[in-house]
Design a protein around this nucleic acid. Structure first.
Length: 282
DNA sequence: ACTATTTCCTGGATGC
DNA sequence: TGCATCCAGGAAATAG
């Protein structure tokens, strides 16, 4: 499941491989498509655009697009952005055009280098959209919440301290922080020693600060290992991540806690599996 | 203004 | 072996 560390890994891989390349043509799959923008809008924004940069914003992959003047001279102009959300099973591939098309391929971009950039998503939870710049506005895509890795402790505390909802739900709320999903919410709560059902408002300042530190720590460690491969996540090179081996609670229901040996519990909060140690987390 | 619940979607796992 | 059912979950939509 692509959360912040997985999307960061994919975006870095894509930037390394396709930045500087030019999109020559776009194919989009049959309806119903996982599109937020219309197919026409997407094709119009992408065709003949140069990929200046690929980066992550929240759980979104942002392709910064430029247009090169028709005569080939003059500076490329910032033109718009292509936003890809991988959902649960979404995947970006950089392939040769002769490579076999995977089932559930919803978008194929032909690149000037002869390669293709493909979006594959069996479960169709992913989303594609474009943001086009004009003379007046070059406001790019912005995630609804704060970037977890850039968040300051004081700001983090302020975001959460008045919420009555369980801290687990608050961590998953993209309007507060953008990028945290089920795995890293559970892992951060374990590291901070906080039970997922505790209401955010009931936590002390010390606990909230500890959670802030734990979240940044676990996200950074996960990025360093290329993210977590559970179900079918792979990066832009088709390689799996390794952070799933470091999970201390997620997906470990019934296994002994690595700290106290008490079995890890699993409960449902806000419709999501939540894993925790009943002894270490209070 | 918040918070909680439902819905979307398909492959893989499980049960009888 | 085969068929039905359940489950995973991000975020938008809906309801309270």
């Amino acid at each position: 499941m692509p959360e912040l560390p997985e999307v960061e890994t994919v975006a870095r891989g894509l930037d390394k491989r396709v930045a500087g390349d030019v999109i020559e043509s776009v194919w989009l799959g049959e309806k119903p498509e996982p599109l937020k923008s219309s197919a026409t809008e997407i094709a119009a924004a992408l065709e003949r655009a140069r990929i200046a940069k690929v980066r992550r914003v929240g759980k979104h992959i942002v392709f910064d697009l430029e247009r090169v003047p028709r005569n080939g001279r003059g500076k490329p102009q910032a033109h718009g952005q292509w936003i890809v959300h991988l959902g649960m099973t979404g995947r970006m591939q950089v392939t040769q055009s002769k490579d076999e098309l995977l089932k559930h391929t919803h978008a194929v971009l032909k690149l000037k280098s002869g390669r293709e950039l493909r979006f594959v998503d069996p479960r169709r939870f992913g989303r594609l959209e474009v943001v086009r710049f004009d003379e007046k506005s070059k406001t790019g895509f912005a995630a609804p919440g704060d970037e977890p890795l850039d968040s300051e402790a004081d700001r983090f505390v302020e975001l959460f301290r008045k919420r009555k909802t369980p801290i687990k739900s608050a961590l998953l709320n993209q309007k507060l922080l953008s990028g945290v999903g089920n795995i890293y919410a559970d892992e951060a709560l374990f590291r901070a020693g906080i039970r997922p059902r505790r209401s955010a408002a009931s936590l002390t300042l010390v606990q909230l600060r500890k959670l802030h530190g734990a979240l940044i720590e676990v996200l950074k460690e996960a990025i360093a290992l290329g993210g977590s491969s559970v179900s079918d996540y792979v990066d832009a090179d088709g390689k799996e991540g390794f952070f799933q081996l470091q999970h201390r609670v997620y997906g470990r229901e019934g296994e002994p806690c690595q700290v106290c040996q008490i079995p890890i519990k699993r409960v449902i909060i806000a419709g999501r599996s939540s894993h925790y140690c009943p002894h270490c987390q209070r």
